[in-house]
Write a protein that binds this DNA or RNA. Structure first.
Lengths: 180, 180
DNA sequence: GTCTATAACTAGATAGAC
DNA sequence: GTCTATCTAGTTATAGAC
């Protein structure tokens, strides 16, 4: 993976456009115009439009895999808390990439490197549910995971947002103490 | 608005395809193949591809507007509860349409009839927040609204899912009783 | 490493026969 | 009301000059 100024700028512009208009809704012409180069230059640096997508997703996917590894050695409540904190942190630092992954339609998401992301999200959802057997608790985990992703998308990292996301996750997921 | 068998079938097939591959990711050819007719037939029944989208979204948008009207005369906790119940009901009965609206990229969502949907969603979010002034509570409302939409999308209406969505919304939004 | 020009293809939409 | 054939414009990707 060679690093050049133009290559990095292509990734930056593509990330911005993909997150606003979607992968299918963004053409090579749009990206080239944003960078200030020709379409041919894009395809000199990347094999294809999909290769641009793969390259810009890669760092976020790698960190998600890291989080997955960290969670694997934990269990129960500690795993749940680490999953919440870790995911909120990740989605705020990669809010554009999260949007691209999250809003990507099925056919785009079935292509690499998304294929490897899917099981990591499933693991994360299981960690959010903290081994609950009640279907309602598993659905709650899905709601929180999806809701956090959706709200964080496109927003800059921010302390208030970060703590609010963690707070609502814990309020929604921590089993309520019987009655009140 | 004339009702014909072919017209309705076009809407049904388009709804299915748009929800799986997105508006941009679905071609007239795809829809025609699904219906078993030609592209020209699609454009005999509808002025354009976008007109198909508008027609299939219309019933869901109309019901959302109805919900908005019902909520307008309520206040406080009653409004919040009615918003949660009403939205969960709506999104489960129109789970495909919800996906199309929810996952639609910006440029698609800026076109009619989506322009009128956006403020209704904002009102709904305010009802979820129940007039809370704390930014964290408003963010919680966004998370719950987005999470419910996302989880319901594409799923059949189901009593377990319905009650679980309502339950997680109430757990996440009802302000916790001081400490525990 | 970047460009212009263009190939090869697909899109949405139209014309006109039946 | 549905079709085949076609138009125009836009798409990804390649060729070859600089």
């Amino acid at each position: 993976m060679v690093r050049t100024k133009t290559r990095d700028e292509i990734i930056a512009v593509a990330a911005e456009l993909f997150s606003r208009a979607g992968f299918k809704g963004t053409s090579l012409h749009d990206i080239a115009a944003g960078v200030g180069c020709s379409k041919a230059t894009l395809l000199y640096h990347f094999d294809s439009k999909e290769a641009i997508l793969a390259a810009l997703i890669a760092p976020a996917a790698a960190e998600l895999a890291e989080l997955d590894t960290r969670l694997a050695v934990l269990g129960g409540a500690a795993r749940q808390e680490a999953a919440i904190d870790g995911f909120v942190d990740l989605v705020l630092r990669y809010s554009r990439e999260a949007g691209i992954i999250y809003y990507g339609s099925q056919d785009v998401l079935c292509s690499p490197p998304f294929a490897e992301v899917k099981p990591l999200i499933d693991n994360l959802c299981a960690a959010f549910a903290a081994g609950a057997t009640d279907p309602a608790d598993q659905i709650a985990a899905e709601v929180v995971l999806a809701g956090i992703s959706s709200v964080a998308i496109g927003k800059p990292d921010d302390a208030v947002l970060r703590s609010a996301l963690v707070a609502v996750a814990k309020r929604a997921l921590l089993t309520p103490p019987m009655k009140d």
